[in-house]
Design a protein around this nucleic acid. Structure first.
Length: 502
DNA sequence: TGGTTGACTTGGCTTCAGGATT
DNA sequence: AATCCTGAAGCCAAGTCAACCA
């Protein structure tokens, strides 16, 4: 961990040292009193050498390692559910280490303890074979609760949260849940117009609580904000819609030539910054002003409501409707609209894929799915640039040769010279295609520098939209979904025809 | 009504296998 | 065969939301 910047943070060092001292013997505690006087270079070196050793293993050793890994997965990575053999998602218990957390987490650096069999609850079928605990140990408990999906659990010592062993996304159980999720979002589509009408009415309600609900829901719908459930104090300070504070928004009666602008700036899930400037309706602007009156920056913007109230009122519009459904609904709707807008029949498969990625990107931007620019970004762009340059030169050369061939064919026509012209024409065409492909790749990568597509693809986009699009436009599904994704979305690949509409 | 707990989904980052390139 | 590079798998933290309890 010494290579990481966060080990230099005061909170990290303080937490780590406190927990470390707990583990010390009486003598050690007497001796080791100041972290800054501790020299970890030897153990650091030891681990570096270990890593080096591993890297330098012979082919045979590597192969043996891999086989052992496969054997373990084969033995522990599957379970039987309702008579089907299903893949388990995370079948290994989390190893001990130093807790990091995201953003300015107050518990960073604390010691995450090793989990013992005595910490583990096994949840299996009544008549299934109970897994043996390691020699000399016993499980905390063995239970047979068929109302939950987890196979094993333990309590983690940093926050006291429960951790679970659950099934892989490719499993029937998870697939069915996923399908249901999208069906709920599709039901929202049918009533969203009336919900929008209602929350606009709520902006002028006599009750401040109702107004807050109306504005919050508008943000959730229009900006795809998360619900914003309140959280413990001893976690990183992040917010969602309902937990927004006055300090997170700035009102501009006019900005960039537009009226009623709201500027958002806050840290959301995983301490990812959300920054956005949006023009809003006059009534929304007026309400926000009222909500902010006589408040300090650190006061809640929506002080009369919370996610539980919001969800309760949503469930009256439609059973199973909660705040997060809007994200799924808006993401999937956006994908479908963008795909319709960006795809035409005359496109090549590569161009269609770029269109798909652009549609996917529109969703990722809506949901604020960001990533750090890849460490290798500049380098890999440069590489691509060089490839393009080389290809261009080749193209110029090929064109020259074609011209030459044409010329000699004109001067002394023969079967042979005709063939040569055709051959050169073909070469030019091929190079041209390869060049466009590279340029498309470049555009795609550039536009994707700080945008993460994976999260929306995996969690927000109804896979049936993608499957239908692939079928309609003759794009092989393998070009859009990799193996894992195809496994996860097997239900949609089976189910959706090209006529599917979200 | 408000706080807590439990179960499940969502999320970005790291690691590493394996294909591409030299 | 060695090295490079990338995509995917894996990791585990951090959300959402319902049930439960006082």
């Amino acid at each position: 961990m010494l290579d990481h910047e966060y080990t230099t943070k005061e909170v990290f060092q303080k937490n780590f040292f406190a927990d470390w001292r707990e583990e010390m013997t009486h003598e050690e505690r007497k001796l080791i009193k100041n972290l800054s006087k501790c020299d970890f270079s030897e153990i650091h070196k030891y681990f570096m050498e270990k890593a080096e050793e591993k890297k330098n293993m012979t082919k045979e050793e590597k192969k043996a390692m891999k086989e052992e890994g496969n054997r373990l997965t084969e033995e522990y990575g599957f379970c039987m559910l309702d008579g089907h053999r299903e893949k388990i998602g995370n079948f290994r218990v989390e190893p001990p280490g130093l807790f990091r957390g995201r953003g300015e987490h107050p518990k960073m650096g604390k010691l995450k303890k090793r989990i013992q069999p005595e910490d583990i609850i096994i949840n299996c079928g009544k008549d299934s074979e109970i897994p043996e605990p390691p020699e000399g140990h016993r499980w905390k408990k063995v239970q047979h609760d068929n109302t939950v999906t987890w196979l094993a659990s333990w309590v983690e010592n940093i926050q006291g949260h429960i951790k679970y062993i659950m099934l892989n996304p490719s499993s029937k159980l998870k697939g069915e849940k996923d399908w249901q999720k999208y069906e709920v979002a599709r039901r929202l589509k049918l009533i969203v117009a009336s919900i929008r009408e209602q929350y606009r009415k709520d902006w002028s309600s006599r009750e401040m609580k109702t107004r807050q609900k109306g504005v919050a829901l508008y943000f959730i719908d229009r900006l795809a904000l998360r619900a914003g459930t309140e959280k413990d104090d001893d976690t990183a300070d992040t917010v969602g819609c309902c937990s927004l504070r006055v300090e997170h928004i700035t009102l501009h009666p006019e900005l960039d030539g537009q009226e009623y602008m709201v500027e958002f700036d806050f840290l959301g899930k995983d301490s990812i910054r959300y920054y956005n400037r949006v023009p809003v309706e006059k009534q929304v602007f007026k309400n926000l002003k009222i909500f902010m009156e006589n408040k300090d920056p650190e006061d809640d913007l929506f002080d009369r409501i919370n996610t539980s109230y919001l969800n309760k009122s949503l469930s009256e519009s439609m059973p199973e409707l909660t705040a997060k459904v809007f994200r799924t609904f808006n993401a999937s709707t956006t994908l479908q609209d963008q795909l319709n807008k960006l795809t035409t029949d005359d496109m090549s498969v590569e161009e269609k894929i770029l269109s798909y990625n652009r549609a996917n990107r529109a969703v990722a931007i809506l949901c604020n799915h960001q990533r750090a620019a890849p460490k290798t970004f500049e380098k890999s762009m440069q590489l691509l640039q060089e490839k393009i340059k080389k290809k261009k030169e080749q193209l110029v050369e090929a064109k020259k040769e074609l011209k030459q061939a044409k010329k000699s064919h004109k001067e002394t026509p023969s079967e042979k010279s005709k063939k040569l012209v055709e051959k050169k024409e073909k070469a030019v065409r091929r190079l041209q295609e390869q060049l466009t492909k590279l340029q498309l790749q470049m555009t795609d990568r550039e536009e994707n520098k700080v945008i993460a597509l994976g999260t929306s693809k995996l969690n927000y986009l109804d896979p049936r939209i993608t499957v239908a699009w692939c079928k309609k436009h003759k794009v092989p599904i393998e070009k859009i979904y990799n193996k894992t994704q195809r496994d996860k979305f097997a239900w949609a690949i089976d189910m959706a025809g090209e006529e599917f509409q979200f």
